[in-house]
């Protein structure tokens, strides 16, 4: 036992020696130095584009989420040192839990901000700057074999999806349609598509029949509709374009004849009422930081891009006029914030 504790003490004193000598060694080696202003940092890229660095946090609508990730990738090709985190929380969840408490710089939204949300934000000193970034077109899809229907009126859609006396069979809505049970698919609350569809079709946001297969996952809608001859579903135009072979998109008649969903008809406003604007809200105080301001400029600048918005995500790009308007609004906000 004596030996043991003796060894222990020896070990301890040896440790003392080692740590002490280590500290001396560190101090001695500090002689080999460099000037920190010469770029002791490893990120020693030059040029003005790389001079921006920082982190941008984005939350909000899952509809705008794919667009935001596209913009992030494109932006980072020019500014590799700016970090961008994107979270899909839903429009409301983003405002309530992230944007208004001041935790994020942008909040994506598939609908305009509500008064209650604006109030919550201003209570925390967060001032939202509304920027329209694209237009989304909802698409009603049926099975490829469903030869009896190519065009559907808004009234028929309302009848099918309304919670009051929802029809069980196709023939209940239109006598020309087969006497077969509906097999309905649609998004659940998370996608924001649901809110928008119920508002413009049924007439009240969130009001919908409930006996359909509701899912977060748009591929489930595509799959379900493509497998069942008497199925119908609705989803964002972006997802339809990815799967345009598997399912058939219906033309929609809002009283002015049948209009097929397409980038052109959505842009021209013909495809109504199922096209809607998509937004991102920037926090004005965040725009004071140059990397946030630059990202916002980049996004608006590219909101007219066919490649980024239409091809990669499937939304309708902004028009040049819209872009100019958003840019003016943004520059004014940036100036105010940085002023």
């Amino acid at each position: 036992m004596t030996g043991n504790s003796g060894a222990g003490r020896e070990l301890l004193s040896r440790r003392n020696f080692l740590v002490a000598s280590g500290a001396v060694g560190v101090a001695g080696l500090a002689g080999c130095t460099e000037n920190p202003s010469d770029g002791g940092d490893q990120g020693t890229t030059t040029g003005d584009s790389a001079s921006l660095s920082g982190t941008i946090n984005i939350a909000g609508s899952s509809t705008v989420f794919p667009l935001a990730t596209q913009m992030k990738s494109a932006f980072q090709r020019e500014y590799p040192d700016v970090k961008v985190n994107v979270q899909s929380t839903g429009t409301g969840g983003g405002f309530q839990n992230n944007f208004c408490p001041g935790n994020t710089d942008f909040n994506n939204a598939s609908r305009p901000i509500t008064d209650a949300e604006r109030e919550l934000c201003s209570k925390n000193g967060v001032e939202p700057v509304e920027l329209k970034v694209a237009t989304d077109a909802l698409t009603v899809v049926v099975n490829n074999e469903a030869g009896w229907v190519d065009c559907i009126t808004v009234d028929e859609l309302a009848q099918i999806w309304s919670p009051e006396n929802p029809p069980q069979r196709w023939s209940d809505v239109n006598a020309d349609w087969p006497d077969e049970t509906f097999n309905l698919f649609g998004p659940s609350q998370a996608s924001g598509t649901f809110d928008y569809f119920t508002e413009v079709i049924v007439g009240e946001e969130g009001k919908s029949r409930t006996d359909y297969k509701a899912t977060e996952n748009d591929s489930v809608i595509i799959q379900g509709v493509s497998k069942n001859e008497y199925a119908m579903g609705y989803l964002g135009f972006a997802y339809y374009t990815e799967n345009s072979d598997s399912v058939k998109a219906l033309k929609v008649d809002a009283g002015d004849g049948c209009i097929a969903p397409s980038l052109e008809t959505a842009k021209s406003g013909e495809y109504t009422p199922l096209s809607r604007p998509l937004f991102t809200y920037a926090a004005k105080s965040s725009l004071a930081e140059e990397h946030v301001a630059e990202f916002a400029r980049f996004w608006i600048e590219n909101s007219t891009s066919q490649e980024l918005v239409a091809q990669n995500v499937g939304y309708v790009p902004n028009t040049e006029d819209e872009k100019a308007e958003m840019m003016d609004r943004l520059e004014a906000a940036i100036e105010e914030a940085q002023g």
Binding site: S62, T89, G90, G92, G93, F95
Partner: peptide
Amino acid sequence: VQLLHGDITGGGLA
């Protein structure tokens, strides 16, 4: 898990 990713509002019932 789904509730947290859904479009739910901070203080809401969901």
